[in-house]
Simulated scan of single mutants.
Amino acid sequence: MISGVQRKAELLWALSQREIAARFKGSYGGLSWYVIQNLLLLTLYSFVFGTLFKNRWGQGDHPSGNFTVALFIGLIVFNLFAECVTRAPTLILANANYVKKVVFPLDVLPVVTLITAVFNAFVAMLVLIAVSWYLDSPMHWQGLWIPVILLPLMVLILGVTWLLAALGTYIRDINQMVTLLISAFMFLSPLFYQITALPKAAQTWVMFNPLTLPMQESRAALMLGQSPDWAALGVYLLIALPVAALGYLFFQKMRGGFADVI
């Protein structure tokens, strides 16, 4: 799996560049639309949850950080996951020309999707830096660990994307199911709230959400200046690697019938 990705590095880079450029082709605003979208969503969520529902980031009357910044960090992690998983079931169907007309390494398509999502997350991080500066919310240098913190999640995303891309080609209902699950993941992860605000029993279940640890560790590093929990991230990576390998093997096993069902 790893050597296959390495051998196709040049192709991955070319396809990723084309994918990113295609999103803004013919648009006068270009990349600025992505920035505007992030800011609008952040403003909306901050108003609803921070003002109307009076959510605060901390305990009682002693907040430990800016709610808007904490929300933005959570959105970056969630969008990285949601963008890949949402596109996965229709990934092969949307690139049917590669299946029918060309001898093409289809397994690179999920990797391209992940690279594009990582690029979008990078742009969102730049917006986050600007928002933090505007809100006078301190950012700690431990935030530089965020790419490492998100690495296990990216490995997991890759495996899930391979799996859903294969399944979605054969079972079209997978796309509808994934849409519902993404909505559930949004509210069952500590995106709009701190996990400590939940009852003890609920905290245990939320910790099984694959987005919980990356969100908490990213916030702890950037907002509180804490070093990552290397033990927890190590366990996460040990789980993510087999998931990625199984997703890749399943994709390779099923790809032989893609042309017959498209």
Rank of each mutant, 00 (worst) to 15 (best):
L211K: 01
D107S: 09
P242E: 06
N95I: 09
Q216I: 14
M223Y: 05
V243G: 01
R172S: 09
V131K: 08
A202C: 13
L52V: 15
G159K: 01
G257W: 04
M186S: 08
A88I: 03
L156K: 03
F250H: 15
Y28D: 05
P110F: 01
R87F: 09
V178L: 03
I182E: 04
A240C: 03
L128H: 00
V5T: 14
C84V: 08
N175L: 11
W57P: 10
F122C: 12
D260F: 05
L211I: 05
Q176P: 06
L191N: 09
Q37A: 15
I174S: 02
P242A: 01
T113G: 13
L150R: 03
N55I: 12
K54R: 15
A117T: 00
A88G: 08
W162V: 00
P214W: 01
F192Y: 08
K100Q: 15
F258P: 02
R18G: 10
S218Y: 06
P210L: 02
G4C: 08
M254W: 06
L233R: 05
A96I: 14
A88F: 00
L39N: 09
A221M: 06
N55Y: 12
L42Y: 07
I182D: 03
G247Y: 02
N66T: 06
M254V: 04
Y248G: 00
F251P: 06
G60C: 04
R23S: 11
V103E: 07
V155N: 06
Y193H: 06
L114D: 04
I171A: 14
G257H: 07
P152W: 06
A197I: 15
L233W: 05
R87N: 14
N55G: 14
M139H: 08
